[in-house]
């Protein structure tokens, strides 16, 4: 369990750095903004106390915000998906799985379920974030277009990263 805590703290820091210096700089026509830091929320163990889930997601979002200048937006949306995460995971997984110390990941959930679980969290987050950012109904078409493209890219990146890290673990 201690090991798991350290792993998550390291993941928190690495994802924050990667988000600020790599993923915030990605430029593909100006339409893709991947928010890969969500991987931290996706991969937190199921038995994490809920207050810790909320608080850590909030602080990660807040730190990302400080460096992007969009104060409060990532904090609000990350907290929101952290709030929804227990419901999303109980929707996709049978109850007994969650109680027996299983970690979210391809190893335990299988690729299709993990992808769907990630995609749901990412899509909700991106939709709220991009909508908060522009806050105009008149731009709804443009927002949805960007949400779909960016969600696709973020989900893809998270699944690829997860595949890389699980495959090295097996060796």
């Amino acid at each position: 369990m201690n090991n798991e805590i350290i792993k998550n703290i390291v993941r928190f820091i690495l994802l924050l750095i990667a988000q600020i210096f790599v993923f915030n700089k990605i430029n593909l026509g100006g339409y893709f903004n991947p928010y890969v830091y969500l991987m931290f929320i996706v991969l937190l163990p199921f038995e994490t106390p809920r207050w810790l889930l909320l608080l850590s997601s909030f602080s990660l979002g807040f730190l990302v915000d400080i460096f992007t200048g969009s104060l409060g937006m990532n904090a609000a949306t990350a907290t929101f998906v952290a709030f929804l995460r227990p419901s999303i995971s109980s929707l996709l997984l049978p109850k007994r799985d969650k109680d027996s110390g299983i970690l979210p990941g391809i190893n335990f959930m299988g690729l299709p379920t993990f992808t769907l679980y990630t995609a749901l969290i990412v899509f909700i987050h991106h939709f709220l974030l991009f909508f908060l950012e522009s806050f105009r109904l008149s731009e709804l078409g443009n927002i949805i277009f960007r949400v779909i493209l960016s969600s696709f890219l973020t989900t893809l990146l998270i699944v690829i990263l997860e595949m890389i890290f699980t495959s090295t673990k097996k060796r």
Partner: peptide
């Protein structure tokens, strides 16, 4: 937490 974020925004 949501109220804090919205105040920040």
């Amino acid at each position: 937490l949501e109220i804090i974020s919205i105040l920040l925004i």
